[in-house]
Amino acid sequence: MAKIIVVTSGKGGVGKTTSSAAIATGLALSGFKTVVIDFDVGLRNLDLIMGCERRVVYDFVNVIKQEATLNQALIKDKRTSDLYILPASQTRDKDALTQEGVEAVLNELAETFDYIICDSPAGIEKGAQMALYFADAAIVVTNPEVSSVRDSDRILGILQSKSRRAERGEAPVEEHLLLTRYNPERVQAGEMLSVADVEEILAIPLLGVIPESEAVLKASNQGTPVILDQASEAGQAYQDAVQRLLGGQLEHRFLEVQKKGFFQRLLGAK
């Protein structure tokens, strides 16, 4: 039985797609057959982050409308085995995703996959609600910044009332906090909310903290999920987050200001 995980946030630009790509890749690297679905109809971007934009032939909406089969639309990742991408449609039709259609696709995927990652669009409109409706677990991507934290709390409210699990009165959707773009220097200077502050306000378990890192932009420039950049702090932090998602108990890293050595200072290392 597949586990459906939605990557959501309410606010845009906090790192949902980056996180979806990284976590899906991490799960596949751990040996689980994983598919990552772009729910952002009209603003497809997961394909770019995954580096498969030129291999898109059919998309999610084509499958829902039965213009293509699921196997025709799924893109097999070239770097990671057991990883597949289902791209969003670029149609401007907002109602292209129907609940029945999404359910049928998810049911078919659940027969062969271990994990289904749903990359939610920003906002709390239909697209975002569709992405979270069938979820068993939610990864709430949050930046340590007021509007992002507030929007995350909104989306948590929607998970608790509008998801299928909530409507059916089943066990609630598992909630995980993923704090991204974290800058320990600014936290120390009192200019940024700390991990503890955000945890206290949102009151959900912490899955991981991804430090602000130049590696993230570099990875998206190249169309490589940042988790594959194992030398970068962001890549390592995503690896830790994936292990925690799989039940591992790992201590959180990169929360403190790194002391620079003499040579690092001299060479201006970051």
Partner: peptide, 13 residues
Amino acid sequence: SASVAKERLQIIV
């Protein structure tokens, strides 16, 4: 400014 942010968030949330 971070503690101001936290306080404002706690109230609005």
